[in-house]
Design a protein around this nucleic acid. Structure first.
Length: 570
RNA sequence: GAUUGCGUAGCUCAGUCUGGUAGAGCAGCGGUCUUUUAAACCGCGGGUCCCGGGUUCAAAUCCCGGCGCAAUCACCA
């Protein structure tokens, strides 16, 4: 680190603070991106929206060019270290020795101070600016954290560079270098000997103490949200680690990652409304995919034995705290597995991610409970316990526990449905009533603070799923619930082409007018089953929801960088 | 799609119930200050009160319609 700084500090090519005019500096040949400031460059344009704040910043921009000879939009800088790394370089001993020597020199000016403090060159966005006359304190922020830079008029190489320090605005991106020391009050800081402007922020900043809190502006202007609220970057770093953790785990289990079409001629694999698009050259209507399932199964037909895909699905449905029109899911299929194979896979995966997240949160000083091998992670007011094994409960058992009678007792089921005011109870088929009662009465019995697999759903409410060999009323399907949210399902997949065709056809018959505009029989998929697909287990996992749970984020918008919002204009 | 709440300076918020000259802090501009920690002090500027209509002598405030956001519900995962 130290060496990097020394090397970098000898390369003066990146210094932006040039001598004042009339030195006409041409762009260096090796860096054609740089444009020299010229009178023709309209500093006051584009026209501001009338805000004094913007005008004041643009005026500074003009002055920097005209009076200080600075080009405020910089270029490549070598030898930078993160603010956290610079802070870590601070040496109590070196600072104490330096301060003692300075005190001596004050008493006796013939004394010479040797500065043994480590040096650093850092960059960051300015988030605080305190001008105390001949001393300016600024606080810089980068992805690693904050660090104060102290600029003393006596330490700066030129009047202009100190003038720049005094004129800095909240939001500017600057580079500073100098020894790492501390102030009288003990604050670790860079005592700057150099200061360069690398990006003048001309937009009005958020409030420096409260920051940006309006959720709408936070989502619309995520780039402001990210620097104003540092925990946003932490959340997305965690998301990245979780997604790569999923990849690592799946690869360790021998799964191959694949990418299947996101634009599909037929939107299959789930019961959701698709988005429509159009290919001009082929004059073809296409659907954004609602699920990758039918393509992944084709891969099993083709001979791949363990595949997974992590990617976006698009569903033309409502938006709320746990739904965004585009969302990230993982689906995985294993030849010759079944839904219990998938249960073990998902349990191991979610547990491993929770352990990883427990360690990350501990290291960052965030709240955790339990232990590294029995992690407890907060989610709002809940404390979710990811200890293995997860809970397992059969659908029928949970139903009976909730209602006091078996789900096959249709007379009682219908009575219960009327009691809890299931709408259109009389029009619904028996098993749909069972499921309404289940969702209303039985699901609330699940402990939201324990991941729980609900196993063996009724076949009648899972029309595309393979009935169980031992009891065809039920099917080989589970759903995983965590924190009151459904995180994903799994199935023993249907591989009999005739039954699959019959179920698809039946589903199409039940489609209403709107559904029938986008729901058609996927003949190619059925042909692939006729070629022969091995029996398989398959699962889906809502990645955004899992990230919500593991990062204690109450809304899916907090874990999607740019969530969909309505247009504000027209 | 339904219901409820919210929308005032660049930002964070008072003011709306009970109609009567548009407010504060931060940010900005001009000063003072070499150890600040939401720095402090003196002075100054800053508004389509979300949009449109109505009631009224008078509307940020009351009424109607619209837009956006949030929460809950529906659809869905």
């Amino acid at each position: 680190m130290r060496r990097a700084f020394v090397e970098a500090s000898t390369q003066q090519g990146s210094v932006l603070l040039r001598p004042p005019p009339p030195t006409p500096v041409m762009p260096p040949a090796e860096n054609p991106v740089t444009v020299p400031p010229s009178p023709s460059q309209p500093d006051s344009a584009p026209p501001s929206d009338g805000s004094d704040l913007i005008a004041a910043r643009r005026e500074k921009l003009r002055k920097h060019r005209a009076e200080l000879g600075i080009e405020p939009y910089g270029q490549r800088v070598d030898g930078l270290m993160s603010l956290a790394a610079a802070r870590a370089l601070h040496s109590e001993t070196a600072s104490a020795e330096f301060e003692a020597a300075e005190a001596k020199r004050k008493a006796d000016p013939t004394q010479v101070t040797i500065d043994g403090r480590p040096k650093a060159k850092v960059a960051g966005r300015l988030v605080q600016h305190r001008d105390i006359g001949k001393l300016v304190f600024i606080r810089l922020r980068d992805a690693s954290g904050d660090l104060q830079v102290t600029l003393s008029k006596g330490n700066m190489p030129s009047e202009g560079e100190f003038t720049l320090a005094k004129q800095l605005d909240y939001g500017d991106i600057v580079v500073a270098e100098g020894p790492i020391g501390r102030t009288k009050t003990g604050e670790i800081c860079v005592w700057a000997s150099r200061l360069e402007m690398h990006s003048k922020s001309v937009a009005p900043p958020p409030e420096k103490w409260h920051g940006l809190t309006d959720p709408e502006i936070r989502y619309r202007k995520r780039y402001v949200d990210m620097y104003s609220n540092p925990e946003v970057i932490r959340t997305f770093e965690a998301r990245s680690r979780i997604v790569s953790g999923i990849r690592r785990y799946m690869e360790t289990q021998g799964y191959l990652e694949v990418e299947t079409p996101m634009m599909q001629p037929i939107a299959g694999g789930a019961a959701a409304r698709p988005f429509t698009t159009h290919h001009n050259a082929l004059d073809m209507t296409l659907f954004m995919r609602i699920a990758p399932e039918l393509y992944l199964k084709r891969l099993l037909v083709g001979g791949m034995s363990k595949v997974f895909e992590i990617n976006r699905n698009f569903r033309n449905e409502g938006v709320d705290r746990s739904h965004n029109p585009e969302f990230t899911a993982m689906e995985a299929y294993q030849a010759f597995g079944d839904y219990m194979t998938m249960l073990e896979l998902v349990e191991g995966l979610v547990y491993a991610l929770a352990c990883q997240q427990w360690r990350d949160r501990s290291a960052a000083g965030l709240e955790v409970g339990g232990s590294e091998t029995a992690p407890v992670i907060p989610f709002g007011s809940m404390r979710i316990d990811y200890r293995k094994p997860f809970e397992r409960v059969r659908y029928a058992e949970l139903f009976e526990r909730a209602c006091g009678f078996p789900m096959a007792d249709m007379a009682k089921v219908r009575a219960k449905a009327r009691e809890i005011h299931v709408k259109d109870e009389a029009k619904l088929d028996d098993w749909l009533v069972v499921n309404e009662v289940f969702e209303e009465v039985a699901e609330p019995l699940l402990n939201p603070e324990r991941p729980t697999f609900v196993l063996d759903y009724p076949s009648a409410i899972s029309p595309l799923t393979r009935p169980s060999r031992s009891n065809p009323v039920l099917c080989d399907r589970w759903d995983l619930f965590i924190g009151g949210m459904e995180v994903g399902p799994a199935y023993s997949e249907l591989n009999d082409p005739d039954i699959q065709r019959a179920k698809f056809t039946e589903q199409l018959r039940g489609a209403d007018d709107e559904e029938s505009t986008f729901r058609t029989l996927d003949h190619d998929f059925l042909e692939s089953l006729e070629v022969g697909m091995p029996p398989a287990g398959g699962m889906g996992l809502g990645v955004d929801r899992l990230v919500m749970l593991l990062t204690d984020s109450p809304s899916i918008r907090d874990v999607i960088l740019f969530p969909l919002l309505k247009n504000t204009e027209a």
